[in-house]
Design a protein around this nucleic acid. Structure first.
Lengths: 243, 243
DNA sequence: TAGATTTGTCTATTGATATAGACGACTATA
DNA sequence: TATAGTCGTCTATATCAATAGACAAATCTA
């Protein structure tokens, strides 16, 4: 396969150190750099830049927790793995990555009752302007923030769902307390973009990081929409799996 | 929803003009800017930067063919679209975006017969090292490159699939000529990352651009794997839809 | 231990980014 | 045909990004 080398693009609006940081991150996840990175001088030659520029990239990745540099010894890879989340009719993101038996936690960051905008109303099949409950939630796996979600529920059906979520940290449990013993993923839209301000902060990402965005509707067994939501995953930690 | 505003990230390694260009592109495809952009001064205020910085972003998007500025009148949206590709059991990326009735073309960039690496062998259920045909393909919709794929086929079953693909520009047609009249998407892995060198060039993206990556296996009606592939979509043009 | 290798820090210089203000050119409209 | 609104261009300045070279500090190995 193509080595993580060749040239970097100059005056493209993306600083060279950032381009190189991205390449190194990619090379790590593709297994090209497994344990130890090549010396700074060698990387500088490979990318065709000054050693100090490479150092900038390494500093960023160190800050990010991907690398650890040791004077006199070298620069080492600190962590590498990615979580796989299933997407399908039976999907519950709240149940966490499949089979990977990790500790997961759902945290309620914020909640509000507000009028539904047209898009939300259409998704939930209610009147535009009707009251909805909005939940802003964060999911952690093994203490690492992996996803950030914004969910909407019909306020007349799910009045105090915020309280129950705050307690249980689970949408599945919260819905159950409203008599929804089972539900299905109706549709999922997947896209990707650079993380915004709040996601950057909440997911503890570095500027320029990517989020995988899923927009979806969950329906009860009668086909009635119960939840309309957008979940943003840190793309360097997570992949989605459709089966 | 959140307006395409708030603040931009300073000294993040991504130039402000590029961040703003990305935001404007996104705002266009989400329909926030439909026909005409707000005046440069207003955008500058919204993003909290100087007017000249906004002009840099507009210049880049003009170069890209997204905007057209007219002195004295304003700045206008030239093209607006986000293609939606379905992902599911009946998915054929080669058939292009759903219902959007566009002209699409599949182009064979490269092909080779080579021994299967362990991952490919496992996916196709053949012996590691057995010969596979690798196709490097590019898909265009309305003359715009939207995706770049690397596919593997068992070389003993699909000997000269490259020729047929080169002619037809369609995997579906190519498989049909080998007696595979129907096939199904067995599994799809979805992730996102910054585009690599070759994708950057093939998809005509600017450095730092994001690709949506799908890794999948297609099986024939008997459940035998026929194709193992990775398709990279330009994330600023495409979203995936699971239903 | 001596020498080689590798990361850490410093200074200096150049080019790209971003800000600031001013004014010209073109368009629409009152 | 004024006038307001908007894009185009110019000059000047400050800050960030990248290059260049030198040497210190820590580590490994012969």
């Amino acid at each position: 396969m193509a080595k993580a080398a060749s040239k970097v693009e100059r005056r493209s609006g993306i600083a060279l150190w950032r381009q190189i940081a991205d390449r190194i991150r990619l090379a790590i996840s593709s297994g090209e750099f497994s344990e130890r990175l090549p010396p700074e001088m060698e990387l500088a030659e490979r990318f065709g830049v000054n050693r100090h520029t490479v150092r900038g990239a390494i500093a960023a990745l160190t800050q990010e927790g991907v690398l650890r540099a040791e004077q006199g010894r070298g620069t080492f890879v600190k962590r590498r793995r990615s979580l796989s989340y299933p997407v399908g009719a039976r999907t519950r993101f709240s149940e966490g990555p499949k089979g990977q038996a990790r500790e997961r936690r759902g945290i309620l960051l914020d909640h509000a009752v507000e009028p539904a905008d047209p898009r939300t109303a259409a998704a939930l099949e209610i009147e535009p302007g009707a009251k909805v409950v909005r939940l802003e939630t964060l999911s952690e796996a093994d203490g690492r923030a992996v996803s950030r979600a914004t969910s909407f529920f019909d306020a007349t059906r799910f009045a105090s769902i915020d309280d129950i979520y705050a307690e249980s940290g689970s949408i599945t449990v919260a819905l159950k307390s409203f008599g929804i013993s089972d539900y299905f993923r109706h549709s999922t839209q997947i896209s990707a973009r650079h993380a915004g301000d709040t996601d950057l902060a909440d997911l503890k990402l570095s500027p320029g990081a990517i989020v995988l965005v899923t927009v979806y509707v969950n329906v009860d067994p009668d086909g009635r929409p119960v939840q309309f939501a957008e979940t943003r995953f840190a793309a360097d930690l997570v992949e989605l799996s459709v089966s």
